[in-house]
Write a protein that binds this DNA or RNA. Structure first.
Lengths: 221, 221
DNA sequence: CCTACCGATCGGTAGG
DNA sequence: CCTACCGATCGGTAGG
């Protein structure tokens, strides 16, 4: 009889389904936002019926939290690894950070903040904020802190940007990148400076933040 | 008999109601976003019943468009006036721009872009994008263009930031400002450099973008 | 400018 | 893991 199939087999299937739901939910939440994604869309995207979601997750918000928990774990690993590469300069590490976040948090980071503030129940906010701080803010901040300690970046006492604000500035440029490429294609036919190396928006944005836009260029090239 | 009340009187009342709806809708849409705002919330906020909205506006999206039309007209006037102040430096004018947009578009600018992309019917997108370009992008871009012409900012051919990208970079920092002040209060106790003038986030962000974060400070102070 | 109400869809539950 | 279904709420309409 098939019921002597071991519990581990059952659990494996069940776990596989749970992970399929999480994957589908992650993709949808990141692309469309919490409110625009319905539980039925998630179910259909992974080939199950909607009420099944409530067997694996107690409600929609918990599913959302779980998605972010997974994403946060992955981000933390990746970003801490990048931050620890002492052999690479601060701008190079920041470019890697931007590239990683751009493909990971596909859309803008501020959609997430909007949801945190307006769509998510207050009782869940603290947990999500902590996830975000530990997995995103702290690793990036450590790069800026190191840049200041090394004398490469101005310290706040010299009128420099405090590391946490610098981190938020960097993160906010992520939403920018999708904004500008969507609004129109200024970036592709950048007809002056992109003859030696192909254009990389991540590097470009980091260079702008670090070196500014003012004349008398500092830029090493 | 009261029915000889002139049509202009009737129209005035009707116009007044229409404007009350627009004001309520603007405040709610800016704060909560298109999807989170229900037509019943708008109606209640201005003291009418929900079906009345459909006498003044053909549907929710049209109301949303009309709100943005009004906002765009006001922004265009304000921003073009700021851009035209030849007596003020580029950073000073940009600080005024940031201050204006911060109080006008209260929340993040990228919420608007998200809605443009995912919540608004394609047939309405083009009109809204045009509004945004004419009232926000173009005036700000002209400030950056002037800064480049004057030799204050690097031109794109010297590795500088193209004016349109610079504009989007500036706009993206607006969402940042709300992000960072919400996440925690790094900004208030900025314990090094803020003894001479009170801390102004708008000016601070503009200075960062223009002069960068790198050491060997250029900053005039 | 309102009352009354519609079809659709949402998050979530019952019961197996 | 499903079928069947719930109460609530949404955008929008009928009719006056």
């Amino acid at each position: 009889m098939p019921n002597e199939r071991p519990r581990s087999g059952l659990r494996a299937d069940t776990e596989e389904t749970r992970r399929a739901i999480l994957r589908a939910a992650q993709s949808l939440f990141m692309k469309l936002g919490y409110r625009a994604v319905t539980t039925r869309m998630v179910a259909e995207a992974c080939g199950v019926k909607q009420p099944l979601l409530y067997y694996h997750f107690s409600d929609k918000e918990t599913l959302y939290l779980e998605v972010h928990r997974e994403q946060a774990a992955a981000s933390r690993t990746a970003l801490e690894r990048i931050a620890a590469r002492q052999g690479e300069s601060v701008p190079v590490r920041l470019s890697h950070v931007v590239r990683y976040l751009r493909q990971s948090y596909q859309q803008n980071m501020s959609l997430f903040f909007h949801e945190l503030r307006y769509e998510i129940h207050p009782s869940m906010r603290a947990a999500m904020r902590d996830l975000f701080r530990l997995s995103i803010i702290t690793p990036i901040m450590s790069i800026f802190e190191e840049g200041i300690r090394a004398g490469f970046l101005r310290s706040p006492s010299e009128g420099g940007v405090p590391p946490r604000l610098a981190t938020y500035l960097l993160l906010s440029t992520l939403s920018n990148l999708s904004m500008s490429t969507e609004a129109e294609g200024e970036l592709e036919h950048d007809e002056g400076s992109s003859f030696e190396k192909e254009y990389d928006p991540a590097e470009f944005v980091v260079q702008s933040l670090i070196y500014g836009m003012v004349a008398r260029p500092f830029i090493e090239r």
